[in-house]
């Protein structure tokens, strides 16, 4: 019951949060723009326009979803500790696990809303463009589900940082650093290693697993249909095949659990 109460108040706060409104708007606008832009050159390829739209949105979501998740979560513990409301909450009959799960539930719903609105608009746009509603919406549903898993992983990482760092200012910096490393630098470093290795042991043995170990890359691989992979990401396609669907899914599902457990362990040690 306390979990629901914490989630309720967090949702109320999120509804009035500028960041959340901006995130929802941003995701919706980008989803629509990418759907429109992606539709133009595919007329004769024979791939479903929805698949193309989902692929375009995937390349964007891999940056945006973690960013939105971190923006929602970096303040969750450190902000409350600084404002003194954490000490107050903990003087109520309420456990730390309940606080964390309640906040996660609220932020998960916010993320689902932000991603969902964009994808529904994209789907409607494609149906309207093609005049055909009789198609498989699986790529959009898959994108929605995997976005939530990716977002959950970064929510957990955000709570972890928020618990480890007492000042919200420092926590926001650390959150941006996590984002930069996980979704930008990680791939660059792997790519650099790939190039210098020139198809050696690293490329064949370690690279596929290192790639899939990053939830952002697992998310990318899961949402890139095999038909399009050769054109879009020639280097990554083989790697995707080695780790396989199971490996990608495991990574994407394991990260949220792991991140939330670590966040909880760190939160337990926070003295309000």
């Amino acid at each position: 019951m306390s979990i629901i109460n914490v989630a309720r108040i967090e949702l109320l706060i999120a509804r009035r949060n500028m960041w959340v409104a901006t995130s929802v708007l941003m995701m919706a606008v980008f989803s629509l723009v990418l759907t429109l832009a992606g539709g133009a050159p595919t007329g004769s390829v024979g791939v479903s326009p929805l698949t193309v739209a989902a692929t375009s949105i995937t390349t964007l979501s891999v940056y945006l979803v973690p960013l939105v998740a971190l923006l929602l979560s970096f303040d969750a513990i450190s902000g409350e500790a600084e404002r003194g409301t954490l000490a107050l909450s903990l003087s109520y009959p309420l456990s730390r696990a309940e606080i964390l799960i309640g906040k996660f539930l609220a932020h998960f719903l916010v993320l689902g809303f932000a991603v969902g609105v964009g994808l529904i608009l994209s789907g409607l746009l494609v149906v309207w463009q093609t005049g055909n509603a009789d198609m498989s919406f699986f790529p959009l549903i898959r994108l929605f589900a995997t976005s939530l898993a990716l977002g959950s992983a970064f929510l957990g990482l955000g709570y972890l940082v928020s618990s480890l760092v007492r000042q919200p200012g420092v926590a926001s910096g650390a959150a941006i650093a996590i984002w930069l490393v996980a979704v930008v630098l990680y791939d660059l470093v792997l790519l650099g290693a790939l190039v210098s290795d020139g198809g050696g042991v690293f490329t064949k043995t370690f690279f596929p697993w290192l790639l899939v170990a990053n939830p952002a890359d697992a998310f990318r691989l899961l949402n890139m249909p095999d038909v399009l992979v050769p054109e879009l990401t020639s280097g990554i396609s083989n790697a995707g095949l080695v780790s396989g669907f199971a490996g990608q899914l495991t990574s994407l599902l394991l990260w949220p659990v792991l991140a939330l457990l670590l966040a909880w362990a760190a939160f337990r040690r926070v003295e309000p």
């Binding site: 109320l12 706060i13 404002r83 003194g84 409301t85 000490a87 107050l88 003087s91 109520y92 009959p93």
Partner: peptide
């Protein structure tokens, strides 16, 4: 004990959006 205790911390700042 928490259920039957009231506490007002020093300098508490409630969320301004509520």
């Amino acid at each position: 004990a928490r259920r039957q205790t009231g506490y007002l911390p020093e300098n508490v700042a409630f969320h301004g959006a509520l």
